[in-house]
Lab assay of single mutants.
Amino acid sequence: VGDQVLEIVPSNEEQIKNLLQLEAQEHLQLDFWKSPTTPGETAHVRVPFVNVQAVKVFLESQGIAYSIMIED
């Protein structure tokens, strides 16, 4: 199991704000291929294997929908 690319769908401005804060966490080494800008629009982010669980827990705790787009 390696890195994953998640497709994330924020449903409101609050969730977009939370994702932008997540993007700013440099220690997570997230690679946003497509940043969140509009509710209902997908964002794509590559998550290093060591941080996959932490990111998924965060998304679930914020009620942000996501799916695994690419499993490496």
Rank of each mutant, 00 (worst) to 15 (best):
D72I: 11
D72F: 15
V1P: 14
L20V: 07
E26I: 12
F49K: 12
F49C: 07
F58I: 08
P39I: 12
F58P: 00
A65P: 13
I68F: 06
T42R: 08
A24D: 08
Q62P: 00
T42M: 09
G2L: 09
E14D: 11
P39A: 10
G63T: 03
W33C: 07
T37V: 06
T42L: 08
N12G: 04
P39N: 03
Q62H: 15
A24H: 09
P10N: 01
E71R: 05
G2V: 09
E71Y: 12
A54D: 07
E41F: 06
Q29C: 07
L6R: 00
Q53M: 12
E71I: 13
V57E: 15
N12T: 14
I16Q: 02
A65I: 11
D72A: 13
L59S: 00
E7H: 08
Y66E: 00
S11D: 10
V9P: 01
V47Y: 00
D72L: 14
Q15H: 08
E71P: 13
E14T: 10
E41Q: 10
N51I: 06
K34T: 09
P36V: 10
Q25C: 06
Q29T: 07
V1D: 11
V45H: 01
P10M: 04
A65S: 12
H27T: 07
E26T: 15
S11Q: 13
L22D: 02
H44L: 15
W33V: 14
D31G: 05
I70N: 13
T42G: 05
L20C: 05
V50A: 15
D31E: 09
I8C: 05
S67M: 09
P36I: 05
F49G: 15
D72N: 09
D3Q: 08
Q25V: 11
I70S: 10
K17F: 10
V5T: 09
E7K: 09
L6M: 09
G63Y: 04
D31M: 06
L20I: 08
I16R: 04
D3R: 05
V52I: 13
G2W: 10
I64V: 04
T38Y: 11
A24I: 10
Q25G: 05
Q53F: 08
D72Y: 15
L19F: 02
K17L: 14
L6V: 03
E71A: 13
Q62G: 05
H44G: 04
F49I: 09
Q15K: 02
V9H: 10
S35R: 15
V52W: 10
I64R: 00
K17Q: 13
V47M: 02
Q4A: 13
Y66N: 01
A43E: 01
D72R: 05
V57P: 01
K17N: 09
V1N: 13
G40C: 06
E26A: 15
Y66T: 01
I64Y: 04
F58K: 02
E41W: 07
W33S: 09
W33E: 09
I64M: 05
F32M: 04
E7Y: 09
Q4L: 13
Q4S: 08
K56W: 03
V47D: 00
E7I: 15
S67Y: 08
V50L: 14
K56R: 10
L28N: 03
Q15L: 01
V52L: 15
V1C: 08
S35Q: 11
P10W: 04
Q4K: 07
P36T: 04
K34P: 06
R46H: 10
Q62F: 12
I16V: 15
Q29R: 14
P39D: 03
S67L: 07
E41Y: 05
E71W: 13
Q4Y: 15
E41V: 12
V1K: 15
Y66D: 00
N18Q: 15
K56S: 04
V52E: 03
N18D: 12
E7W: 11
L30A: 04
P39F: 04
G63N: 10
Q15W: 01
Q29D: 09
L59N: 00
H44C: 08
Q62K: 15
D31C: 08
V52H: 04
F58D: 01
V57L: 15
T38L: 10
T42A: 12
W33D: 09
L19N: 00
E60R: 05
I70W: 12
V55Q: 00
Q15N: 02
V9N: 07
S61Y: 06
L30Y: 02
A54L: 10
A43I: 15
E71F: 15
V47I: 09
N12C: 04
G40E: 03
W33T: 13
S11T: 10
L6Q: 01
Q21V: 12
I8L: 09
K34F: 05
K56E: 04
A43M: 10
P36C: 03
V47S: 01
E60C: 04
A65T: 13
D3F: 15
P48A: 05
L22P: 03
S11V: 12
E41K: 08
D72S: 14
E60W: 04
A24C: 06
F49T: 08
E13T: 12
H27Y: 11
D31P: 02
H27A: 08
K34M: 05
D31F: 07
G40F: 09
E14Q: 10
H27K: 07
I68Q: 05
T38C: 06
E26F: 06
S67D: 06
F32Y: 05
H27M: 06
N18T: 15
L59G: 00
E13Y: 11
V55D: 00
Q29L: 13
Y66L: 01
K56I: 14
A24T: 12
I70K: 11
L28V: 04
H27E: 12
L6T: 00
G63R: 03
I16T: 04
L59M: 03
V57C: 08
L22F: 09
G2S: 07
G40T: 04
H44V: 15
K34W: 06
Q29H: 13
E26D: 10
P36H: 02
K34C: 05
Q21F: 15
T38H: 08
L20F: 11
Q29M: 15
E26S: 14
D31Y: 08
A65Q: 10
L28D: 02
N51Q: 12
S11E: 14
Q25L: 11
T38K: 12
T42C: 05
A65N: 09
E60V: 05
I64H: 00
R46S: 08
W33Y: 15
